[in-house]
Design a protein around this nucleic acid. Structure first.
Lengths: 332, 332
DNA sequence: CTGGTGATAGATACCGCTATGTACCGGACA
DNA sequence: TGTCCGGTACATAGCGGTATCTATCACCAG
């Protein structure tokens, strides 16, 4: 592997000049710059990222801290970050923190508290991510992708505003004639999280009864169990699910209990995972632009890392997609 | 951030001795070692990964090259790698290569051809991954997670043997009384790939007609289109789908054409994605241990990186899970 | 003609660690 | 008692860059 000294020799300059060219310093004469560029090209030189990180004090890359890489919201956010990083030629690392146990938080913080981790994007949709955020030393550049109402950690925070869309979904159900809407929550969901708050907003605006929230795990099996409880209650005619996986478990539980969707019960999901349009019935759900969220976080993290002002980015807001899983209740 | 010199000063030794302790060199007296360890602990010292990579010549981490991070097989493999890396305290990076266009392959190779990328695991389920493998300089340590019959690149290759399970799935359908089994292929699938080869194996063993393979894209919409073609053909009574997403598209197309599953048509998927057990009908599919594959690749990559002999790892073989989407043909 | 000035580019120091050569110690041996 | 030796720790020399100080040169004004 050629180093900048090889390039310098080939171009007939000192290696510091090569460094200047690499970093777009203005203090290089155009013809010198061209000569160096040519030498770089012919030698196939690429700067060593480790050396660069050492010299710079911090790596010009991003590491993503997340509690999960498979769930749709997390994975899509990661994808958005990766895409944005790749177009900038930046490295991206991944570190998952499965729980908010003190030991694991400490390990994670130790891991990312290393100059070669570069800038951080913490996907803080849940307690594990939030705990990392809180435990992070203040001097390490980090951006949080969060729930809209995440606890204030003094960090730059970017969130998708799902509250309005959750209210829209609930109102859609109410408008169809349902007396109220039940809610099955995902584990990351706090009482005042966007999804739950929007649901409450709509219900109280309509003067509808606010049923107790049914908690579920991430696992579809857990959602199935939650669905069974709901299926047993004939008053349940509309369910807003914390995400599309939950909706899938609930829907199957309803089916097994002999309750038709949307004939007997309407269901709405959250996220718009790729398959939801192909379900039978196709799922009414809220489309979330996680990829855009990831992109925005990346941009903000780079700004944080380089000390530039935070860029303004537009996020496309969550939006209700009405499909086949919602209908008027049977007894109007 | 304390450096090894700080630790050395605190422990009353030279910093080289601290380095020895960090690298478990035997040439350190036990009490010296203990003193250094204590100093490390009290100072909260953590070695700088960038400096380490520079000194070592190669970073002690893994970067995963993949064409996708969202599709189940890819994402699960990545998850397996990440989990294994994390238990070893190793860094993992991600680099996606979307296509096998020469420009993109070159960019990707340049990116990973850097000491700080560490060891490589290339997820080579498709042409993009395979192209990277072929373009990779021989001296860079890499392991390939592949289709069983990937072209020989002279690299260590680890694969899940899906051929047998694909044959099992096909035989299951044949045993139910279907005259033959149609196949909808995913883009990564070559004519001689495990899934397709197993399907052919079973069909020819049974002396059944081998229908033309129906190609689909990764997108469920593409699978829906493929499904529409199949739905129009009354001779189609059993379909082996390249993966569960394909199965979802095909199933919906069948539904829209008024053909019942499994009454009129039986379908089998591949992968056993989390939701498939909750579909209506629950999907008969082949369970793949991608996480195990990822773990094995990680272990092999570390061995490659450190020059140790390649560890023997057992992969749990793909296995058919029979659920509700398969049944005897109506006029069985 | 001389000193000042801006534009370039070279020289030096350093980032934090690994690897290897060298010096020192005490004990075993002749 | 002198010598050799294994065991241990220190000294030195990089790894490949960045940052900054300094030197050189051409050009201009006084």
């Amino acid at each position: 592997m050629p180093s900048i000294r090889d390039v310098a020799a080939a171009a007939g300059v000192s290696y510091q000049t090569v460094s200047r060219v690499l970093n777009d310093s203005p203090r290089v004469r155009p013809d010198t710059r061209a000569a160096v560029r040519a030498a770089i090209e012919t030698l196939g030189f690429h700067p060593n990222r480790a050396a660069r990180a050492l010299g710079l004090g911090r790596a010009p890359g991003i590491t993503v801290v997340t509690s999960n890489t498979m769930l749709y919201g997390y994975a899509s956010t990661l994808q958005g970050i990766e895409e944005a990083a790749r177009t900038e030629g930046m490295a991206v690392g991944v570190r998952v923190v499965e729980s908010d146990s003190p030991a694991e938080i400490k390990q994670t913080v130790d891991y990312v508290n290393d100059p070669s981790a570069g800038g951080l994007v913490v996907i803080a949709f849940d307690p594990a991510g939030t705990a990392v955020l809180e435990a992070l030393p203040a001097d390490i550049p980090a951006i949080a992708a969060t729930e809209p109402v995440a606890p204030d950690t003094g960090r730059v925070t970017i969130a998708l505003d799902e509250r309005g869309a959750a209210a829209d979904a609930t109102e859609h159900l109410l408008a169809l004639g349902h007396r109220t809407v039940h809610h099955v929550a995902i584990p990351s969901e706090g009482r005042s999280s966007g999804r739950q708050a929007g649901w409450r907003d709509a219900l109280s605006r309509a003067g509808a009864e606010i049923p107790e929230v049914v908690a579920s795990g991430w696992d579809i099996r857990a959602a199935y169990l939650a669905g069974q409880r709901l299926a047993g209650d004939p008053d349940v005619t509309a369910v807003l699910c914390g995400n599309d996986d939950i909706a899938q478990g609930v829907r199957r539980a309803l089916y097994d209990a002999g309750r038709d969707v949307p004939g007997d019960v309407s269901i709405v999901g959250f996220d718009d995972i790729p398959g939801s349009a192909f379900w039978i019935p196709a799922l009414t759900t809220v489309r979330m632009d996680f990829v855009g969220l990831g992109r925005a976080c990346f941009l903000a993290a780079v700004a944080e890392l380089t000390g530039q002002p935070r860029p303004e980015t537009e996020l496309t807001p969550p939006r209700l997609i009405v499909r086949e899983s919602t209908a008027p209740p049977r007894h109007g």
